[in-house]
């Protein structure tokens, strides 16, 4: 079996490994690099639980080959450690924004990206940004509340949805 040597930054630390070209990035992260917060739900790019940040932007790790991460920077929920990440975690807990928790790491990563890029986001924009992250437990409302409370408006002033 031919393998390809790859090296990339994983949560800020350099990693290198030798992979079969067909190995999905999601499997590489989960089963070769121990980052099991990267969940797998459909391997088709729909459910969003495998979302990671690739060079800071959300991406589906099930729709990437591990070889495509070569030379890039990958962030998983384990690596979210800045103050905003901690605020998000606290807010998710306080608002009961998770139940089974399976979608949660990906939800945090997407929300983190959104709040970094659009701290002014209102409810509709939050819902749109999270539309590619399915949750089967919460009905999204407490997730939206958790994210809204960290925007510049602090969850006030956008009753446009619904």
């Amino acid at each position: 079996m031919t393998t390809v040597d790859i090296a990339f930054l994983l949560n800020g630390r350099p990693v290198s490994l030798s992979v079969e070209p067909r190995l999905l990035l999601s499997d590489a992260l989960r089963h070769h690099l121990g980052m099991t917060s990267t969940h797998v739900g459909c391997e088709q790019g729909v459910c969003g639980v495998c979302t990671i940040l690739l060079d800071g932007a959300p991406a589906r790790s099930c729709l990437m080959l591990a070889v495509m991460a070569d030379g890039r920077s990958v962030t998983t929920a384990e690596g979210l450690s800045d103050p905003l990440a901690e605020q998000l975690r606290d807010s998710f807990q306080e608002h009961h924004a998770l139940q089974c928790g399976f979608c949660t790491p990906a939800m945090l990563l997407t929300a983190h990206c959104l709040l970094s890029a659009h701290p002014e986001a209102g409810e509709s924009q939050i819902r749109e940004a999270l539309s590619g992250n399915l949750c089967r437990c919460t009905g999204y409302q407490f997730i939206i509340d958790a994210v809204s409370s960290l925007t510049e408006r602090g969850g006030e002033g956008d009753a446009s949805h619904g």
Binding site: T36, A77, E78, G101, T104
Partner: peptide, 8 residues
């Protein structure tokens, strides 16, 4: 929640 939010 703590373990779930940390991906642990």
């Amino acid at each position: 929640d703590s373990r779930l939010l940390r991906g642990e």
